[in-house]
């Protein structure tokens, strides 16, 4: 009697173990990836937050815990708020530029032209995105050099009489930066839109044409509504990426002239690797994180209802 019960128990245990191993196999496959990604993401994140709560991390062996002192300091620092404002201007400006140029070019590339020509243009128009930030920065510095080709062209056209210092004049630097950023980033929008555009049934445009919609009417009433989900998704990504964008700003203006183009990411780098003030740098970095996260949550919550 007893041996029968034990045998039964053994069978049940076997079944349970089998079940566990069956169900857990997928998780086991995921485990290495989760471990690596998790540690690569979570450890630095934790560390940076930790650094922001101490004073003189890294440069001193035993940094002292100061709690939220660093945060209080940067919140009362006008340079921090100026950098935040610059970052917002830069981000919003860039994304608007990307959207306008990217959409226009997507519409242009989507028209009925010779397919070979269309492929050629599509490839050419994607190029700015492919170059690394360094290449883009150096390239535009040469173009925007006071004796560079852009000034030369403008001078020949009679638009300016003296060479303009695009990256060195405080009133021009941000605009120049926006120009460079727009040029660099529009392909992402363009490509996303192109695929969206191609999924819009041609008949909708024909119906709109018959209903009396002109070019703009068709764009507004047919294209945009169909692309709304794409626009929201892509704009969000672009906003987040541009908000933290570092190389392009650092390598073209370095935050100058005179900090007029200083954004939060360059401020972080400057604190860290120029001044070696790693605590302050971590604090600014965490503030970037908080702002990005808050914005994303707000954005997604708002859009969930719309899409």
């Amino acid at each position: 009697m007893r041996s029968a019960i034990i045998a039964d128990l053994k069978k049940d245990m076997q079944k349970i173990l089998n079940n566990i191993s069956n169900e857990s196999v997928p998780y086991l496959f995921l485990l290495p990836c989760l471990l690596i990604l998790g540690s690569l993401l979570s450890v630095p994140l934790y560390k940076v937050v930790e650094y922001s709560l101490y004073d003189n991390v890294i440069v001193q062996k035993n940094p002292s815990f100061v709690g939220l002192q660093n945060y209080k300091e940067i919140l009362s620092d006008t340079a921090f708020w100026k950098a935040t404002l610059n970052t917002i201007i830069f981000t919003v400006g860039s994304v608007i530029g990307h959207l306008i140029i990217g959409t226009s070019l997507a519409l242009l590339v989507n028209t009925d032209i010779n397919p070979k020509a269309r492929t050629l243009f599509r490839s050419l128009l994607i190029l700015p995105w492919i170059f690394t930030a360094v290449v883009v920065a150096v390239n535009w510095q040469l173009l925007l050099n006071p004796f560079g080709i852009i000034n030369y062209g403008l001078d020949k056209l009679g638009i300016i009489s003296e060479p303009l210092d695009w990256l060195g004049d405080p009133s021009l630097a941000m605009w120049s930066l926006l120009l460079i950023s727009t040029w660099r980033g529009y392909p992402f929008i363009m490509v996303s839109f192109l695929s969206g555009l191609q999924s819009i049934p041609k008949e909708l445009y024909e119906a709109a044409e018959i209903d009396g919609a002109g070019f703009f009417g068709k764009f507004w009433h047919v294209t945009i509504p169909q692309l709304k989900p794409v626009i929201y998704g892509v704009a969000l990504l672009d906003l987040i990426w541009t908000f933290q964008l570092f190389p392009l700003v650092w390598l073209t203006t370095g935050g100058g002239p005179g900090r007029t183009t200083e954004v939060l990411s360059t401020m972080t780098f400057r604190y860290a690797f120029v001044n070696f003030e790693f605590s302050q740098a971590s604090t600014v970095a965490v503030s970037i994180l908080i702002i990005s996260a808050a914005f994303t949550i707000f954005y997604l919550r708002n859009e969930k209802s719309k899409i």
């Binding site: 008949e203 024909e206 044409e209 018959i210 009433h221 509504p225 169909q226």
Partner: peptide, 28 residues
Amino acid sequence: PRERGIAMVFQNYALYPAKTVYNNMAFS
């Protein structure tokens, strides 16, 4: 097309998906 005084009913209806029925009809 809009100058010709025609109206068309398509095989796949071609209704504007983002508009209500009312606005679909009222669009033109």
